[in-house]
């Protein structure tokens, strides 16, 4: 401005005005173009992320449906292959009573039928327990986990231990069952794939969250591997863990300790105390 006030030459004024106006105009157009392109880029990115999320949800849903179907098939097979023949045999023995009138034979067949019915009762109880562990229902997660780890210990191949530091108030039964299933799946995976010598489960509380941590000295997973395996279409176990954690509104984290001697799996679950 000072320059223009001093130098009132028409040519200079025209040049300054022309370039000034052009510069401002280009700047305004530049801002508009930048905003449009940037927004398009952001929308494209958001759509891409949404598609990935949708795909992941779809995969988890499919895994959950497949898991349910497999569970139903397993129960159907147990009932058909084990309970069915047992009850049919018991029926045969009881039928025999109608044919043979001798008391000794009748007594023997009734005894055999009773044995078989006892076996059938035990079998059905086992199926029922696999669906809902009675210890979990009656005594809570701590007892159910202790029970599970004691059974693993009894096999003699693995040193398994549990320690709950702060579990005075029980969670809702549905939550406890979900946590139990997640830990059960993790422990089964560790036993199947990791070749570990010990598994140790600890529980603690911090603020509004409960924490469950499994340590083991076998070959484990780290978070990136878990994420990768979770996104491939094969395998059901990890996807079930992920979908259960999602239902719990919690988080799961796989890591290896600094000395690379053992792996840790940490589960964070928001507290929802039972009424």
């Amino acid at each position: 401005m000072y320059f223009l006030q001093v130098n009132n030459n028409p040519d200079t004024v025209s040049t300054v005005l022309f370039f000034g106006t052009l510069g401002m105009f280009v700047m305004a157009i530049g801002i508009v173009v930048f905003v449009i392109f940037h927004q398009r880029k952001v929308i494209r990115y958001q759509l891409q992320m949404k598609k990935l999320e949708d795909d992941k949800q779809q995969m988890l849903l499919q895994a959950s449906i497949r898991f349910q179907e497999e569970e139903r098939q397993r129960i159907a097979a147990d009932l058909h292959d084990d309970a069915g023949p047992l009850l049919a045999t018991a029926r045969l023995y009881l039928n025999e009573n109608l044919i043979h009138q001798e008391p000794a034979i009748q007594l023997q067949s009734i005894y055999n039928a009773k044995q078989i019915i006892d076996d059938a009762i035990q079998l059905i109880r086992n199926i029922s327990h696999s669906l809902m562990p009675p210890t979990l229902k009656n005594f809570g997660l701590e007892s159910a986990m202790t029970d599970l780890f004691q059974k693993m210990n009894a096999s003699g191949n693995l040193n398994a231990s549990v320690r709950f530091h702060d579990y005075r108030v029980r969670m809702k039964l549905e939550q406890e069952l979900l946590v139990f299933r997640v830990i059960q799946e993790l422990v089964t995976n560790i036993m199947k794939h990791s070749n570990s010598g010990f598994i140790h489960l600890t529980q603690n509380t911090n603020g509004q969250n409960l924490y469950f941590r499994i340590h083991h000295d076998g070959k484990g997973l780290i978070q990136s591997e878990f994420d990768r395996l979770n996104n491939v279409s094969t395998g059901l176990g990890l996807k079930n863990i992920q979908s259960r954690i999602k239902v719990l509104k919690g988080r799961i984290f796989f890591e290896i300790d600094a000395s690379h001697t053992y792996y840790k799996v940490t589960i964070e679950v928001p507290k929802e105390p039972a009424m």
């Binding site: 004024v13 305004a28 801002i31």
Partner: peptide, 29 residues
Amino acid sequence: ISFLIYVAGTFFLYIMAENMVPNKEFRKE
């Protein structure tokens, strides 16, 4: 954008107007 482009395009014109009004060439531009 209508205001942005108008204001950006006439920015130099208006701030120069006070001093350049006597200039006939400027008035045409």
